[in-house]
Structure formats: C-alpha cells, structure tokens
Design a protein around this nucleic acid. Sequence first.
DNA 1: ATTGACTGGTAATGTCCGTTACCTTACCGA
DNA 2: TCGGTAAGGTAACGGACATTACCAGTCAAT
Lengths: 225, 225
Amino acid sequence: MELQMATATHARRPSKNARRAAILEAAAQVFFEQGYAATSIDAIIERLGGSKRTIYNEFGSKEGLFTALVSENAGTALSALAVDGLEGRSLSEVLLEFGRRLLAIYMSPGLIGVYRSIMPEAGRFPELAREFFEKGPGRASDRLAEVLEEARDRGEIELEDCRGAADHFVGMFRDNLHLQVVLGLRPPPSPPEAEAAVTSAVGIFLHGIYGVDREGRAKGQMSNG
Amino acid sequence: MELQMATATHARRPSKNARRAAILEAAAQVFFEQGYAATSIDAIIERLGGSKRTIYNEFGSKEGLFTALVSENAGTALSALAVDGLEGRSLSEVLLEFGRRLLAIYMSPGLIGVYRSIMPEAGRFPELAREFFEKGPGRASDRLAEVLEEARDRGEIELEDCRGAADHFVGMFRDNLHLQVVLGLRPPPSPPEAEAAVTSAVGIFLHGIYGVDREGRAKGQMSNG
DNA sequence: ATTGACTGGTAATGTCCGTTACCTTACCGA
DNA sequence: TCGGTAAGGTAACGGACATTACCAGTCAAT
C-alpha cells in the first residue's frame, strides 16, 4: 500500500486531485450559501454526486472539509495582492492598482463566502479565523503599509503611522457597498462602478475631501446607490 | 380571556415585559456567541432558567426570537447616531464626534453580535438583513451624507459625491481593527486606542495622507497591532 | 378559600445529521 | 486474465434538536 502511486499520478478514477477540487467546489457552494452549521454533508453530496464516503475519505470530517475550504480560499485570494512590478510607479498609480485588486478580491464569490461563513464560527475555529485574517485582510494591510513606508522613505509623504493609514485604506473597501453585497442586498459592482469606487477611495485617501478635486478625480463618478 | 389585563399591567409574575427582555438578553448571549444555526433553544434556557414553553409562548419559534433580537439590537444602535446639537460646529468637530459614536457602536457587543450572526443567515432572512442594514450602517451613511451636504452648502468643501464619501468614511471604521474584534482575535480597543483610531480616520478623510500632518493630528498615535 | 385560567416544567415525537460499518465495484500490476 | 487493494455506495446508529402534548403550580378575582 505504499509505492504504487509514487511513480506517477496514475489517473485512477477522476485523478484524485480533480476529485478533491470537485468536493471543495461543491462544498464552497453550500457552505458559503448556508453557513457552516446549517450545512449538511448530504447537501454537498446532492450537488456533487457520489457518496459521503468520498468526502470522509478525503477530509476526515465536516470540520476538516470546512477548514480546508477556508484555508484554500484565503490563500488564493492572497496571491492577487502581490505588488511586484509596481514599485517604480507613482504612489497614486500604485494605490489605484492596489485598490482595484483589493476590491476585486473582496467582491469575489470566494472571499464573500468565506467572509459570510467564518464570522459566526470564529469562536469555534479560532485558529482558522486567525489564518483567514492573516492571510487575507491582515496581509493586505501589511503589503500596503510597506508601500506607504517606501513612499515615505522617498519623501513623497510624511506619515507617521503607515500601518494605521493602511488599515483605514483597506477599510474603505469594506464599506457599505461591500456590506450590501455580503448581505445579498445587491449584486457585486459592475466594472465601471468598481472603478469609480476605487478612484474615489484613492482620491480621498491621498488628498482628503478638502483636496479631492485638485486631481479632478471626483469628476465623472456615477452614483453608487 | 380579553379584559382582565386591560385595566393595568397587573404585574403578573415577573411583569411580562421583564420576562421578554430577559429572554432576549439570554438569547443574545447564545445567538451572538454561537450563531443562529448552531444555537439550540435548550442552550438559551440553560442560561435563562425556566422552560422552553416560555420562549415559544412569547416568540412563537426560533425564527421569531432571532428576528426580534436582531431587529431590537439594530434599532437601539441607531439611536446613538443622532447628530442633533452638532450642526453649529465645524466639520472637523462634527466628524470627530460622529466617528467616536460610530466606533463605539461598531465595537459594542450588541452590534458585534448582530454582525457575526446575521451574515450567514442573510440568505435565509433577506428582510431581516435589509432591516439591519438600513437601520444600522445604511442610516449612518445617510446621516453623514447629510452632514457633508450641509458643509458643501456652506462652502467648506467641494465634494460632488457626498454619499460615496460618506460610505468611505463609515468604511474606515470597519477596518482591520473592527474585523479582528468581530473575529474574536483581539479585544475591543481601549478608550485611547479608540480615540486615536477616530482621530486618524478623520484626519485622513479630511486632508488625505498628503496633508494629514498639517493639522498635527497624526502625532501621538499609538501603534495599533 | 376556591375556582379558573395561565404560566412554567417534563417528557415525548418525529426529523435531521455526522459518522461509520459493511458491501460492491473498479482499477492496478502481474 | 486474475487477484489484491482501495475507492464508492448503502444503510444503519446514535445523538441532537425544534416543536408540542400534557401535567403541575400559582396568581387573581370572587
């Protein structure tokens, strides 16, 4: 029972990794829609086909499945936040690009789902909550704080608490628009709506509402209702 | 069965309204801690004493109890956001005071609990989610948008999208600090921490990070970890 | 004090769900 | 082709839970 599969993947039935991915996708649909506690393994099987045995063989338990799901989704979201190749550009450009990616991540079904489903379970899975935070929103703040510190080192800004400012910036993307999407009260923003939200947030973050018109960025925004 | 209690409250056993309040308080502890789906009526009775019959007589069902609980908590949070008596002051003062109240509300156990417990149930109780949003975060944005529009009318600022800016402002108070508290990763901020967060957010909102030092507001902040 | 009604407690009911035991089937190497 | 192994499927088990019947205690008016 040890070296048959060591040579290659062998592609048993549906390849093992594909099976795992299929389980995770079906689990995401149900967990993110219903929440952890209200989700039954049967409901996942209903969407997936097959047998409960498959899930228990792969993940061991409902907890294990949920943990793997959240962990994976938080990890993939993180990957889009790398700001490589942006260091040479102006702070304004970097923030705009960072904001675009941040908003896209926050509005993605995966992170919306994690957001919805992890909140009431944070007490039950403290380590998972910490992992989600540190891989996701916390890492975003960290990366942005570095960007701000570099800008400060270049003399572009004079900001003492770069970490605090970074926190406020990422918070601007968890505004009421985001909350409405999380609560299912409205669909995710269209691309122009998203771009307007990013432009507005970056404008305020850089210049404040006293100076936001200097850049002319507030022009041409659409109403976000 | 119709006119005995019409003459006065009669103070039957523990007064009827006190009973209802006691149920809601015990329900809040359990629902907000465990989430709706994972909460059993038995768990509430364990903290409350008495019998399940009492709860079913008063609220009819688990759904009814949860609905009443969320509705009540969203409503009480709203009451602290009235900005009466602030209209005469400067925009900076108004925003600081508004921010203090907003942060206090967002960090209160009641709203933290509602926040945690309503998210995965938004699909199950769409009307409740809408009521929560409109009574809470939505109303906060509305009130602030009015304040900004008045400031614009006075010529203090030139801001086209007051509603969007207000959304960004309230978003700054749902930053990573707030998320960490919601996830149980850290305790609510101490009064000085809260004041520092408010001061920082208002400074950025008014002047941006380019101009935040003009007011000297970024000085003396504490590190927020 | 007594009656009558309502509140509170006990326990049952029917359902749902996580998990596992056991059987069947498909794949792998020879 | 054949045997062995592991995966997939079926169905059962044990527990939890929302809800309700039914019983007992208690208060108010007479």
